[in-house]
């Protein structure tokens, strides 16, 4: 692979990720925003691949851009967001509501970029340029089910917590309710 083109590809897909994320945040329509989010995730998957993590890239596409986004899509379908929602959101999206958070984020961003680009960043690894080499699925797998075995178990408990919690919250309320909660 040509070194120059690889680097170029990274910047391009990185920019796509940033742009798509910007669209997610500024979009009025939930479905459109979701699509942009998928694009952003895919662009990041590309970055992962270029950084020598093909396994993570694949997972990003399958699990993140695939499974998790499908969840979102289902949710949007359930909510059935209509035109009034979009109109109202439009009202909110005036420039005033953006100034504060954007300014805040800009300051943070400025600080981080300053830190990143200033000198003496890396104490142990002075060469701040990385020579990308492939870390393949086999390496990840043997690590995951070697020293990280317990972490996998905990992750399963974590998903169990998500499952039980999600199930409990989302399932129908018991029928015999006499006073309707929320009252609006």
């Amino acid at each position: 692979m040509n070194i120059e083109s690889g680097q170029l590809l990274f910047y391009v897909s990185g920019s796509i990720a940033v742009l798509a994320s910007l669209f997610v945040v500024t979009n009025k329509n939930a479905v459109h925003a979701l699509l942009y989010l998928v694009v952003s995730l895919l662009a990041l998957a590309m970055c992962f691949y270029l950084l020598g993590a093909p396994f993570a890239a694949a997972l990003q596409i399958i699990v993140y851009a695939g499974a998790i986004m499908v969840l979102f899509v289902f949710a949007v379908m359930i909510f059935n967001i209509n035109q009034t929602d979009i109109d109202r959101e439009q009202q909110w999206l005036t420039w005033q509501s953006w100034v504060g958070p954007s300014l805040l984020a800009m300051i943070l961003l400025g600080e981080i970029v300053f830190v990143l680009l200033s000198q003496q960043n890396w104490a142990t690894n002075p060469s701040s340029v990385t020579q990308i080499e492939l870390v393949d699925a086999r390496a990840v797998g043997s690590l995951l089910f070697g020293p990280y075995l317990l972490a996998v178990e905990i992750a399963s408990f974590l998903l169990l917590a998500g499952l039980v919690g999600g199930y409990h919250l989302a399932k129908e309320l018991p029928k015999k309710t006499t006073t309707q909660g929320g009252s609006q």
Partner: peptide, 26 residues
């Protein structure tokens, strides 16, 4: 690092569902 982020999330997420345990309370 791996165990820290996993366990902190396990604790918080399980607790999150407990915080909203009564689904009738807005």
């Amino acid at each position: 690092v791996g165990s820290v982020i996993l366990s902190i999330e396990l604790m918080s997420l399980a607790m999150l569902a407990i915080l909203a345990y009564n689904r009738e309370r807005k």
